[in-house]
Design a protein around this nucleic acid. Structure first.
Lengths: 192, 192
DNA sequence: ACCTGAACACCGTTCAAGT
DNA sequence: ACCTGAACACCGTTCAAGT
C-alpha cells in the first residue's frame, strides 16, 4: 500500500470511530469522509461497504470476546463463565449504537463483511452454553441461536433511551431464564 | 372537512397501510404520497409527522389491546391474563416492521403522536403485571417499564430474520422469567 | 379551504477524470 | 496506484403559488 493510502486508511478509521460513536452504526459515511478530509471515493475504496468499516472498527473487540470465551471455558465454572461472557458481550455492544441490529442482519447474510465475526461470536457463545447445559446449569431447551438472539435483544434494549437505565436489571431477568437451579440471591450482574 | 379532503385522508390511510406493510415503519413518505396520487404537501397536511400516520394506522389495534387487557383482568386467572395479553401484544407488533422501535422512542417523548397510546399500553400491562404479582404468580422485582421493555424486545426479535422463526420459543423463555411458581410443562405460547 | 410540486438540504453509491 | 468530486437517484420537510 502506498504511504498516502495507508495514511488515509488510518485517518478514516480514526474519524469513523468518532462519527460512529456520535451517530451510531447508521452514521453518515459522507460525514466520515468530509471530516477525514478525504474524497468520498477514497472512503469507498478502503471500505467498500458500511459493514466493512464497522468490521474494521470492531475487529479488536471481536477478537477479545472470542479469546475471553476460551479463557472462561478453561478457568471458570460453566454457569459463571456463561454469564460473565454474556455481560461482556452486552458491554461491548454499547460501544456503538445500533451495531447489534447490524450484526443480526449480518449473521444471516453471507455477503456481509460482518458475517464471519458474527458467526464466530455465536459459536463462542454456543460452546459456553453447551458446557453449562452439560452440567445442568443452563436450560436444555435452547441453542446458540436463541442465546445470540437474547443477548442481542438485551444490547438493543441498552440502545433505547427508555430502557437503558434498566439494562442491568433486564439482564438479570433474562439471565435467570437461561440459568436453572441457581441459589436465589446470587447476583448476576454488576451495579445498576 | 371538505369532501375532497376527506377522500384524500382516507386514500392516504389505505395507501399508507400498504406501503408500511411493505417497507416497515421507516417507509418512504414520498412513496405513500406518490402511490396515493396526491401531492407531498397533502400528506403532510393530514399527517404532520410519520408518527401521526402510524398512530392513525394503529389506533384500532391500540384500542383493541387496551380493551382486551380489561377483559382479561375481569375474566382470567392473573398469570394466564398476563401471558395471553403479552402474546397478543407481540402478535400486534408483527403488523408493521419496526413499529416497536418507534414505540420505544415515543414512550419517552411527550411530543410524539404515539406517546399517549404507548403510555396507555404500558399502563394496561402494568395492571396485569401487578395483579399477577399480588398472587405471587409474577416475579416481584420488576415493574411495568421492565415488562414493556421485555415485550418490546420480543417484538424486535420477531422483526429480525435471523430470530423470527424462533420467536415463539424466545417468548416462552422470557415468559418463564416473568412468571414464577409455574408447573413445568405448562405451555406458554401457541405453535411455532 | 385545500392542493400542488418546486426548492432546499441532506443521503448512498458510482465512476470519469485527474495526479 | 490512488484520489477527487460531480453525477445520479433517492430521502424528509417546507412553503409560495395556485384552484
Amino acid at each position: 500500500m502506498r504511504v498516502d493510502a495507508q495514511r488515509n486508511y488510518e485517518h478514516l478509521l480514526d474519524t469513523g470511530r468518532v462519527v460512529v460513536v456520535e451517530q451510531g452504526a447508521e452514521a453518515s459515511l459522507r460525514d466520515v469522509a468530509r471530516r477525514a478530509g478525504v474524497g468520498l471515493g477514497t472512503l469507498y475504496r478502503h471500505f467498500p461497504s458500511r459493514e466493512a468499516l464497522l468490521e474494521a472498527l470492531l475487529r479488536e473487540s471481536f477478537e477479545k470476546l472470542a479469546a475471553q470465551a476460551a479463557e472462561l471455558e478453561a478457568a471458570s465454572a460453566p454457569a459463571d463463565a456463561l454469564i460473565v461472557w454474556l455481560r461482556d458481550f452486552v458491554a461491548f455492544s454499547r460501544t456503538y449504537r445500533g451495531v447489534t441490529e447490524m450484526m443480526m442482519a449480518a449473521i444471516e447474510n453471507t455477503e456481509s463483511a460482518l458475517h464471519t465475526s458474527c458467526v464466530r461470536l455465536r459459536g463462542a457463545g454456543t460452546q459456553l452454553l453447551t458446557r453449562a447445559q452439560a452440567v445442568g446449569a443452563a436450560r436444555p431447551d435452547m441453542d446458540g441461536t436463541d442465546l445470540f438472539a437474547l443477548v442481542t435483544a438485551l444490547a438493543w434494549l441498552g440502545d433505547q433511551p427508555s430502557s437503558a437505565t434498566r439494562a442491568g436489571h433486564l439482564f438479570d431477568i433474562i439471565a435467570s431464564a437461561i440459568l436453572v437451579n441457581r441459589a436465589s440471591g446470587d447476583s448476576l450482574s454488576e451495579s445498576p
